[in-house]
Amino acid sequence: MILQDNLGPNGDSIYNALMQAHAGLSEAESHALNARLVLMLINEVADPDRIAALLQEARSPASSV
């Protein structure tokens, strides 16, 4: 699981592209986009152990607002 920065100088532009992908969508459409995106990224990662670790880390309760 890579939790150190892996995007280097491209972080801001990639985040911006993600926001652009959602531009103009309803909340339901955005949820659907997110679901498709997660499934596609899971397919990119492929390794079941890494996917399990990522799912567990994302599941751990967010501590704030």
């Binding site: 890579i2 939790l3 150190q4 920065d5 892996n6 995007l7 972080g11 801001d12 985040y15 501590s63 704030s64």
Partner: peptide, 9 residues
């Protein structure tokens, strides 16, 4: 809070 990659974002 816990993951350095997100701090960069």
């Amino acid at each position: 809070e816990t993951h350095p990659f997100a701090r960069k974002l």
